[in-house]
Design a protein around this nucleic acid. Structure first.
Lengths: 237, 237
DNA sequence: ACGCGACCTGAACGTACGTTCAAGAATATG
DNA sequence: CATATTCTTGAACGTACGTTCAGGTCGCGT
């Protein structure tokens, strides 16, 4: 009945420690079903252990989740310093896409983003700070246009990127791409990256049109300044 | 014990039918806690009825959820035809922001987007089609730059917008704005709409830089075409 | 050989949940 | 007024869950 009794030398084909196996199984299960729907019993079964052992090693399901959060956030931070040397990237998720791991890191991140764990929240804050730094570096190098609201732009870009990740099932249905998969996938590039880059590089407004709109709006605003609480008719998508 | 026995004439301060009251209570509870965490008992308590009555009227919790989905999607479609006359908008959510209702429609939509209900999925598809139509109209009027990938751009814009909505708690923490609240809110405009518009109108790349990058990338690609599976270093945020 | 601590399990406990059921109250119908 | 129909409830049922517990097995130091 005991897995480890299958003779020590020939190695059980899984050299991970039991707590690590349980954590990985929890990662997969949480990513697939969400924290609340994922049961301790399902995690235990995937890890090949009893439910009691899961609790024995992690104390509670909540603490197991914290361990998963810590593992994923730590993994992202590790990869980040590695990626620093390989040149900056506007995609905070690029670090995770190349993994050939069996661990669905991006899918777990998508779940954790929704469930609002504190560890992931600080990770998001760091991602925004990184994005702001990357943008500032781009401005300095002349590649990026000087921004009116650097922090806001970095925050919105990160929110959009992570938001699309959370909605990866919709992205798959609509665009036929898997946002949680490796970015080297050609369909991902064609379905998502190319349109995204088109928006981010060129913008949507025809050249010269913005200035015309701005002056027109300014004139309209000064003319109708008495109107209270009115919102602009053109809004961000 | 019976609410309705409080004499008919003075109106019970809630003229909604009991099924409607239950549906509204379910909407609020689902929006606040998510479908799985929201219990039938909590919904019943908010509606001022017994848990048994909730099941009696809707058959099951799942069917109650379908009723909520149908109500919200129907509401969005109603507002859409109204908004058609008031001029086009790039924001598919603008229709829902102005509501002074007690019903957290946008918060519910954010939950439904995550849980993946079929009704909301088709609503997303319609939103993308609408966005594509609005963009095409903008191109025709000369306001929007002609797009290389109209459908992809519409899909990505919608995904980003809805994704930010789903992450509204992160947006509140980071930007101090409530994406589920009325859009007339000044802080929303300053924290989210302005940076978003800055990205969408101007783009991020400095003028003339894209062409330089494109030709450089082309040259690099033809030079190193032998390298397999390599991804571009610059990615969409 | 022996005990000790770490590792692991089957069975059970308590709880919270969705749902069912029989019956009471209110309302409509003759 | 009598009766049928609808609306509503308290109590309970069955289930699935996180967690606890007593004990079993294994490796290792002495």
């Amino acid at each position: 009945m005991n897995m480890r009794s299958a003779k020590a030398p020939p190695a059980p084909a899984d050299d991970r420690s039991t707590p690590a196996r349980i954590r990985d199984a929890a990662l997969v299960t949480f990513a697939g079903a969400g924290f609340r729907a994922a049961t301790v019993r399902a995690i235990a079964e995937r890890a090949g252990v009893s439910p009691a052992l899961v609790i024995h090693h992690y104390g509670s399901k909540e603490r197991l989740r914290e361990a998963c959060d810590a593992f994923v956030t730590g993994f992202v931070r590790e990869r980040k310093v590695e990626a620093m040397k390989a040149g900056p990237s506007l995609d905070p998720l690029a670090l995770l896409r190349d993994e050939d791991d069996r661990l669905p890191l991006l899918a777990y991140l998508a779940r954790a983003l929704q469930d609002g764990s504190p560890a992931v929240a600080t990770l998001v804050d760091e991602m925004i700070a990184d994005a702001e730094a990357v943008l500032a570096a781009g401005v300095e190098s002349g590649l990026v246009r000087p921004l009116d609201h650097p922090r806001g732009v970095a925050a919105v870009l990160t929110l959009w990127s992570l938001g699309a990740l959370v909605l990866h099932e919709h992205a798959r249905r609509i665009l036929g791409v898997d946002l949680t998969g490796p970015m080297s996938n050609a369909t991902l590039s064609a379905g998502y990256t190319v349109p995204a880059m088109e928006i981010l590089t060129h913008g949507l407004v025809a050249p010269g049109m913005y200035e015309r709109l701005a002056t027109a709006a300014e004139a309209a605003a000064s003319a109708a300044s008495a109107a209270a609480g009115s919102a602009p008719t053109e809004e961000a998508s």
